[in-house]
Nucleic acid binder design. Structure first.
Length: 114
DNA sequence: CCTTTGACCAACA
DNA sequence: TTGTTGGCCAAAG
């Protein structure tokens, strides 16, 4: 599995109605210190790959990737459609951050090893 | 091989 | 507490 593929894999596991941060994903794939590359990977993700990239926000809960979507506010409306409140281009991480169980993290770690 | 480019982040003033 | 600074590192050129 390539670096980018690992990022896509983790992204797909973020549950509906939850969000993750770039740094959080970097840590989960075992590469802390590469949050910018996580953003880059999502930005350049293939067209047909149906990825819930709108569930990824920065450490403050700000929708920093909004400009990269097909139309302005697409990220915001997709989140709202899942029941996530968005105020001033931000989400409340205390409420909506995804907290994977230890078992799920192990599952991911094993899948990624390939 | 370099060099540039970021959907970031921790540290510091 | 809010702005700024520099480092970070995989990919693309």
């Amino acid at each position: 599995m390539t670096f980018y593929e690992k990022i896509y894999y983790v992204c797909k596991r973020i549950p509906k109605g939850k969000v993750a941060t770039y740094g959080q994903i970097a840590v989960i794939i075992g590469k802390p210190g590469t949050p910018r590359q996580v953003g880059g990977a999502l930005h350049r993700s293939p067209e047909g790959m149906c990825l819930p990239a709108h569930r990824v926000v920065n450490r403050d809960g700000v929708l920093t990737g909004a400009a990269a979507f097909t139309f302005e506010k697409e990220q915001e409306s997709r989140l709202r459609a899942e029941g996530v409140e968005v105020l001033h281009n931000k989400v409340d991480l205390k409420k909506y951050r995804w907290n994977p169980s230890r078992q799920e993290l192990e599952e991911i770690a094993e899948m990624i090893r390939l």
